[in-house]
Design a binder for these strands. Structure first.
Lengths: 197, 197
DNA sequence: AAAAGAATAGAACGTTCGTGCTAATCTGTC
DNA sequence: GACAGATTAGCACGAACGTTCTATTCTTTT
């Protein structure tokens, strides 16, 4: 890894933390330069444009999320336990930084804009939905879920739950939300479960 | 109503439309002045600060939301039909403007900040949750829901559903989302319903 | 119609935004 | 250790930000 790449990584590390707290738009070149003790132009040279920087932050965030939350979950026992692991890891991820899950906040910031950031974000969300669908299928294979369920419907309901958790946790600072989330998750499982499992 | 109030209302009307599309932070004094064909300072005089303007936008939005979505719903048949009406009206409200529901986007923008905007937003969200709780109770009273259910748990799950709808609709532009939402809503009702109703 | 008060415009402020350009410094290769 | 190329800093730019001040124009009251 060359020197430039090292610096870039260090920048992205700081940028990711900032983006999680202030939103993607909150990460201005000036503030980021100050935080990394670089000059604005020196930092800027790594990214060519603000939009590129934002995309790279998302990419960097995704790599960390996949590594720390998704991969470990996928290595646990298939089926419902795996879904639970994924949900737990997502909750940890979303709770570890003050602003919550970067992808949730960024999705809200960019859902109504055009450009490469929105495009990239959209693709990332589809990957995420794909991951959720995959674990849902694994619960069918293990026989925990019925064979005839609508996977995408399950994914929608599961993802909604996470979004609800996100709002209750970060805006409302609800203390019961961890329990509420677990209860709702159990409800969800029951609805899709085979009666005899 | 004095002249000043008239202008202020006209400003807020434009501001609300802008905020729904661009987010609260997207409504800058300059852009808003241009849109209302006023001078920056002339407009500014009505609000004394940007934060005040943002709060007033939220207030104005809330008054319209209450009037066009909540009140009509509360006048329909109590219980599940009333909940359905409320959900439908919320969906209409969230779908009518390009950026979605102002309160959802603003909640994401301000969940991790301090100041009067966040404080006000928080209070508004509590009012909203209160409304949801109220209609949930009405379904207990009609006997459609069991007497021993946890109302706040229901509210959480219902609100989560709306947030899921919001993301699927505005970011993913999902076409099936209206059906998915209805299916999930039916699921939700079934879970809290009396078996014999 | 005059006087008083409210509402608006104009110009300017200091700051920050993203982005170029040029020059200096550092890193790795021969 | 020199040279080439990559990396970083310095400085400047036009534009937009929120805000303040003063002056002008409208409303309202008398």
């Amino acid at each position: 890894m060359t020197k430039g790449d090292e610096t870039k990584n260090a920048i992205l590390d700081t940028a990711l933390a900032m983006a999680s707290e202030l939103g993607l738009e909150g990460v201005t070149i000036g503030i980021l330069a100050k935080a990394t003790k670089m000059s604005k132009s020196g930092l800027f040279a790594h990214f060519q444009s603000k939009e590129n920087l934002q995309v790279e932050i998302l990419k960097y965030g995704a790599s960390i999320f996949i590594e720390t939350a998704v991969m470990p979950a996928l290595q646990t026992e298939a089926g419902i336990p795996r879904i639970r692991a994924l949900v737990n890891n997502w909750v940890k991820w979303a709770s570890s930084r003050a602003g919550g899950c970067l992808f949730v906040t960024a999705s809200n910031e960019f859902s109504n804009r055009e450009g490469i950031v929105r495009t990239f974000l959209l693709q990332q969300q589809k990957v995420w939905v794909g991951i959720l669908r995959k674990v849902a299928r694994s619960a069918i294979k293990t026989g925990e879920f019925r064979q005839d369920i609508d996977c995408d419907q399950f994914v929608f309901e599961l993802y909604s739950l996470l979004l609800g958790f996100h709002l209750y946790h970060h805006l409302l600072h609800s203390e019961e939300i961890d329990t509420r989330k677990s209860v709702a998750l159990d409800h969800l499982f029951d609805k899709y479960r085979k009666f005899d499992s």
